[in-house]
Computed example of a mutant assay.
Amino acid sequence: MDFLLGQNNLWIALIALASGALLLWPSLSKGRSNARIALTDAIQQINREQGLFVDIRPAEQFKAGHIPQARNITLDTLESHVGTLPQDKPIVVVDAHGREGARAVTQLRKHGFQRVSCLDGGLNAWTEGGMPLKKS
Results as ranks from 00 to 15, higher is better:
Pro90His: 04
Leu14Phe: 14
Leu28Trp: 11
Gln7Ala: 08
Ile56Trp: 06
Leu108Arg: 07
Ala42Lys: 02
Val93Cys: 09
Thr40Pro: 06
Arg103Leu: 10
Ala42Asp: 01
Asn47Leu: 12
Asp41Phe: 04
Gln87Met: 11
Arg71Ala: 04
Ile91Phe: 01
Arg71Ser: 12
Asp55Asn: 10
Asn9Lys: 06
Leu24Ile: 15
Ile43Gly: 02
His111Asp: 14
Leu10Ser: 09
Ala21His: 03
Asn72Met: 06
Ile67Arg: 01
Pro58Lys: 08
Asn9Ser: 13
Leu39Met: 09
Pro86Thr: 06
Lys63Glu: 12
Asn8His: 12
Ile37Thr: 08
Asn47Ala: 13
Ala13Cys: 06
Ser27Pro: 02
Val92Gln: 03
Gly101Thr: 04
Pro86Phe: 00
Leu52Asn: 03
Gly101Asp: 00
His66Ala: 09
His97Glu: 13
Ala16Ser: 13
Pro90Val: 06
Arg48Trp: 10
Ile56Glu: 03
Leu28His: 12
Leu22Ser: 05
Gln44Cys: 12
Glu100Lys: 07
Gly31Pro: 02
His66Asp: 03
Val116Pro: 06
Ile56Gln: 00
Gly112Met: 13
Asp55Val: 02
Asp88His: 15
His81Arg: 13
Asn34Val: 08
Thr106Glu: 10
Arg99Gln: 13
Leu85Trp: 05
Lys89Gly: 06
